[in-house]
Design a protein around this nucleic acid. Structure first.
Lengths: 332, 332
DNA sequence: AAACCCTACGTCAACGTTGACGTAAGTCAA
DNA sequence: TTGACTTACGTCAACGTTGACGTAGGGTTT
């Protein structure tokens, strides 16, 4: 609720019209050097700050971007959010943040709100089954970047990691280091990116080495405790399990704790590979082997593509897919 | 850049004036049941969404709140942000998020931007030495809640944890369990809340048990690697160190790793107590004894006080100080 | 029947800014 | 000297909404 100085206040003080002050403030040209100096002095004196609501109303640019994620407390996402927020600031935009909790209905609320606030664009980690919802907003003219999912729609870009390849690398590493009875703890939240990890994992078993058993797959909540539950289920099905690939590092850590609690040694009895390389992964004992994602790069690409879309709404950027890398620590 | 239906579109479709549609949408009364039904039908048909920029311009309420933190990737802060975001949504407000990186100048930029966007209020984890900056915005009429710092200014509320007491409890626990050569790893970022932890820590040594040495204090970056460096420094000063209290859990984990890397056993040789109880703390080995903070409660109080301030700008809420609790795990 | 109130609208201006366009004075070329 | 162009402004309307106020028609009271 600002009650600060307006263009008119500055204009009155200097003795010009508000339009001229506006021109100086936005550096549009069409004013003399002398005027510029006097206007900027008055701006300083009065502490004038442009009102983005009024400006946005007429320019149809509010100077804001939205970031919609699944869960802000996920360290992977928090790191992304931080990068995006910084990148947005550099282009003079302020960031709205909201989480969708993986719930399509909540995401719908969030988008209604962002639309009302006339955001210039949104970067979204979509809730399951919301591609149509998102495509609808894209069609209505909202520049939209979907992260970690590959989609192709007009006005809708996507940026993702090559997690299929990551899962292949993880599974191959387990097989290569001699594991033969391998399970995967997947996520019960099923969006395409979830499925790509499973697909890559299974794909690695297309030509299995001798002795490799067909892989087991369970799907649980993508949290530490979910990972623990997942490992329990895998062990019930196959007590001689000797390798696990988890959907993300939080789950991998949960699985590691559960395995240790059940008397299994890691990596001697069971090798564990995670995905994401969050900070915690290097700090647990043993250190977690995991698929590393270049998050700063993802943030940068997402913002870059979003701005492309904002500046040139008709452009149809090709989906960006970033490579991943396996980091080997002590858990395998 | 929404180009959606406006009040006028809805009004034309129904055959009433925009003002009547506005009354129905905002449920102000002064319309017949028949009109209400027909307007809401048209709203639905056209997918009308109020334009918050226009509304905010006239009501001086933008329907947004700001959250300004030090570092979004700090898990403690992420949890707070999530709680605040949810609470804000429940009152129909959308949350801006920005981090100040502990830098007063950056925080100034952030506040300029938020002011321009006419936020209804801001919750801030202040950068060091910015109380005057904040008080300035409060004086200009921006409802402001400072978290984790005690301040008293008009239009400026504060909510914090009793970290002085937390530090007392941590130090007393170390002393009570027989530790006598104790160090503290503090934060080099010095805001009042930092100092309170140090003050509490030192206070516990006012009447030391027999044999207790005067405590050592180092100040480092509040990160995992900073914690590791801090422990190194403490060990250089006092190789027979047997207890450590760290400013936060990330640092405590860093210190734990550094101690183990130097051949000390935890807790046998050195006991470690952290502060904050982040998720990681229960997962490291050994589990970290730490001061638990009720973060959902802090989020809830911050939002509650902020709304109080928004609704009643003249109210002068008393600072809220929340109790803390020591959680004993295996690191002591 | 006059005076009053209530209901259900409509009208108009304003929020602070910028897009579109107008214009007086000065500059320049033919 | 005239016409065209440029510079440095000003004027006006519009963005979409709500606050303030007006009013026609019906009902109720005196």
């Amino acid at each position: 609720m600002p009650r600060g100085a307006t263009l008119r206040d500055v204009a009155d003080k200097v003795g010009v019209s508000p339009r001229t002050v506006s021109r100086v403030v936005n550096d549009e040209g069409g004013f003399s050097e002398a005027t510029r100096v006097r206007v900027l002095e008055a701006v300083e004196d009065l502490g004038y700050q442009p009102n983005m609501l009024a400006r946005g109303l007429i320019t149809r640019r509010s100077g804001t971007v939205g970031l919609v994620g699944v869960d802000m407390t996920d360290p992977f996402f928090a790191a992304m959010a931080d990068g995006i927020q910084n990148a947005a600031r550099e282009t003079g935009r302020t960031m709205f943040f909201a989480s969708n909790d993986g719930d399509p209905q909540r995401q719908a609320e969030v988008f209604r709100s962002l639309w009302s606030h006339a955001v210039d664009g949104v970067i979204v980690f979509p809730a399951p089954g919301t591609i149509d919802q998102l495509a609808g907003y894209a069609r209505r003219g909202m520049p939209l970047v979907v992260v970690d999912d590959i989609v192709e729609f007009p006005n809708l870009a996507s940026v993702s990691f090559d997690l299929e390849d990551g899962a292949v690398k993880a599974a191959q590493h387990l097989l290569f280091t001699g594991r033969r009875r391998i399970g995967m703890i997947g996520s019960e939240i099923t969006v395409p990116r979830t499925r790509r990890r499973e697909r890559g994992f299974l794909q690695a078993f297309a030509n299995p080495p001798t002795g490799a058993q067909p892989p087991e797959l369970v799907r649980v909540r993508p949290t530490v405790s979910g990972g623990a539950d997942g490992l329990q289920t895998l062990l019930e099905r196959r007590p001689d399990l000797d390798g696990v690939f988890a959907f993300n590092d939080s789950m991998a850590v949960g699985a590691m704790r559960a395995a240790q609690a059940s008397g299994y040694r890691v990596p001697d009895d069971i090798a564990i590979v995670g995905c994401n390389d969050i900070e915690m992964s290097a700090l647990v004992n043993p250190g977690l082997t995991t698929v590393r994602l270049d998050r700063p790069r993802l943030s940068a690409e997402a913002i870059r593509v979003l701005h492309e879309l904002i500046e040139e709404p008709t452009s149809n950027p090709t989906p960006v897919v970033l490579p991943v890398e396996l980091v080997i620590r002590e858990s395998t």
